[in-house]
Design a protein around this nucleic acid. Structure first.
Lengths: 175, 175
DNA sequence: GTCTATACGCGGATAGAC
DNA sequence: GTCTATCCGCGTATAGAC
């Protein structure tokens, strides 16, 4: 678990390919071999790290899907996901687009289903093309906006508040 | 120039760290040494590749900044940038968040100025916090949304049209 | 669980011939 | 401009002792 924490920080800063097992071991003050004892291969560390983060998204989805009203479900998920992204700005944005992560996730069925659930909540029950593009934009914007220099000076609370308002506004369909 | 083209494709697929000079050389059907003859180091290839792409953004900015009306300038830039992003979906999204690229761009003054100009056009002459968050979201959304599975089935023209409408909507300030 | 030691390949990079 | 050949370091991974 300490390995996962250290790995996520390093992945965020250097990317997965840019993070060696030596770096992870150094961050923990142990040797590479000690790390290998817990995870037989580097990919296993990556998968475990992603799972930890996605578990939080899954919890948010579970709560949201218990809601009756789609707009209310959407609001719940947005608030949670935004908090997660804002809290760990660098890591979320970097890992989300990392080619290694993308490849692992594309082949990982549980993750694909999770993303499908997230998309469904964001688009609502009637996923027109317009709503799908909106949902895609919001997904990308939440993960990506948090690292923009433009908003680097905003504290977490303020950034999260603005993002939530604007994401809601973009998803609401006065189009 | 062929090197840059090949490199950009590979960077998009594997990330910068995941792309070796051997891969680039193989893609061109030459040896590593031949590549080194034109670019003394890998970083030089990365910088050159980024410059090629950013030159297109710069051209759009030049045209836009000649406009009198800020909203009209914004619309011009948006249309251009969206076309660029949609046209080369994978590459733009991957390279934009690549840790190596991010680090190079953070230390490269011409790049920083270009990004500042882009931000200025997106926020308009009065960059309130609200407008800055909107601009950050749009920046992130344009580069990131194009690779979302949600919109993978849309053709370039349709995706670009929707993105432009929604980006405009998000930037317009009925907030 | 953690260590030392080591294998093996591939990474970036260079020298020098054609 | 492109080649062959080579250097060196670091990457992942394993073996085996404590």
């Amino acid at each position: 678990m300490r390995i996962i924490t250290a790995a996520l920080d390093l992945f965020g800063e250097h990317g997965v390919n840019g993070t060696s097992l030596q770096m992870i071991a150094d961050a923990l003050g142990v040797t590479k071999a000690a790390v290998y004892h817990q995870y037989p291969a580097k990919d296993d560390i990556v998968v475990a790290a992603i799972e930890v983060e996605l578990a939080k998204v899954e919890a948010a989805l579970d709560a949201a899907e218990a809601e009756e009203s789609p707009p209310r479900a959407r609001a719940l998920v947005l608030a949670q996901v935004i908090d997660l992204a804002v809290e760990r700005r660098t890591m979320v944005s970097a890992v989300q687009h990392d080619p290694v992560v993308v490849r692992l996730l594309a082949h990982h069925e549980p993750f694909r289903q999770l993303m499908a659930r997230l998309s469904a909540v964001l688009t609502g029950p009637d996923p027109t093309v317009d709503r799908r593009v909106r949902a895609a934009m919001v997904s990308a914007a939440l993960g990506g906006a948090v690292t923009q220099p433009l908003v680097a000076d905003l504290d977490d609370e303020a950034l999260a508040r603005h993002l939530l308002t604007l994401a809601e506004q973009l998803l609401a369909l006065p189009g």
